[in-house]
Write a protein that binds this DNA or RNA. Structure first.
Length: 335
DNA sequence: CAAGAGGA
DNA sequence: TCCTCTTGG
């Protein structure tokens, strides 16, 4: 997932309030996997109710309601159909998942619960049914979601380029390679403790990054391709540091390859254009609405067994910023 | 992941 | 009060 540009990207700490009033694009799959793999039971499988996983719904309910209460208007972006060039990456993930599943089953048979708890997350699946449920949740919350033609990260970056969202919240450096002018890291983890330190949200400006590195966006794309992307494994022996040096010295990947003597990717032009001209549709981004209390309670509390306390917390967060409507008690936003 | 519990 | 651990369904 993404290439390692961490050392090359100048990240400025920001406060959540800096983003108040802005639309922020969020990659759904990335977050969904985070929830499914971290909100687990003893056997490492996601929390569930009547044998149906609920971790994704819980995570998005909490996360989205917090963002809304901070004045942020999230736009959730689902992945579309992957490009053929991503096949190898996806197959590799699938193989790993199958291996992990075999190990997990073995651990269960042997009653080795610590091992199962570790392996379970590696078998995590975000099924079409779970995707549909996530969309239903966003609908209940009145939040905007869109389906990318291809890569969610790419579509989000293009939306930011077009000014449809103020920034893209992501952990994936591909966001910048796709040309998103602004990328926010640790948006939702802001203020939480990880490994003893308090997580801080940070903003990266693509222009500032390119200025600082002294390269153009298309040179960043070539650099990323050399380091390795979802569409190509990259060039062995070239990481962020030497890659940057080589691109600055020689200008582009063709020159670097002739100097260093490696083969160019077969589909170099195609890969470049996936980053430089990512396919998107021209549909306008819908406008978010207030959540509907009854719909949320019906779905999560009645159908999926959510506790009253969790429901109340989420509803309170929404209503604190006037983003909760009720069929019996409409808000001003309904008019 | 976020909240709450329980310990330092 | 702060920090770590556990729970959530």
């Amino acid at each position: 997932m993404g290439c390692n540009l961490k050392d090359l990207a100048p990240a400025k700490p920001i406060e959540i309030s800096d983003l108040s009033g802005q639309r922020v694009a969020i990659d759904v799959f990335l977050n969904a996997y985070q929830f499914i793999t971290s909100m687990t039971r003893e056997d490492g499988k996601p929390l569930s109710y009547n044998d149906k996983p609920v971790s994704h719904l819980m995570g998005f309910l909490d996360r989205a309601s917090i963002l809304v209460s901070e004045g942020i208007d999230p736009v959730f972006v689902f992945d579309g159909s992957p490009h053929d060039l991503k096949r190898a990456t996806l197959n590799e993930r699938k193989t790993r998942k199958i291996e992990a599943k075999a190990k997990w089953e073995n651990a269960i048979i042997e009653g080795d619960m610590p091992a199962a708890k570790k392996l379970g997350p590696q078998t995590a699946e975000y099924t079409p049914e779970m995707v549909a449920e996530t969309k239903r949740l966003f609908d209940c919350m009145g939040l905007v979601w869109i389906e990318a033609p291809m890569e969610a990260e790419g579509a989000a970056a293009v939306m930011c380029k077009r000014g449809l969202v103020g920034a893209v919240a992501s952990q994936d450096w591909d966001t910048l390679v796709y040309g998103s002018p602004f990328m926010i890291r640790n948006l939702t983890a802001h203020g939480t403790r990880k490994f003893g330190r308090v997580m801080q949200a940070e903003m990266i400006s693509l222009d500032e990054m390119l200025d600082g590195l002294g390269i153009s966006h298309s040179q960043l794309v070539d650099l990323a391709i050399m380091i390795g992307t979802d569409f190509h494994p990259g060039i062995k022996g070239i990481g962020p540091k030497t890659g940057l040096k080589l691109i600055k010295e020689h200008g582009n990947m063709e020159k670097v390859s002739s100097v260093k003597g490696f083969d160019l990717p077969e589909n170099l032009e195609q890969i470049r254009s996936l980053f430089l001209n990512h396919p998107t549709n021209e549909d306008p981004v819908p406008i978010s609405r207030p959540a509907v209390e009854e719909d949320l309670i019906q779905f999560l509390q009645i159908e999926r067994g959510f506790g009253e306390g969790r429901m109340k917390r989420a509803l309170d967060r929404l209503s604190s910023v006037g983003k909760l409507s009720s069929k019996s008690r409409p808000t001003l936003f309904d008019f």
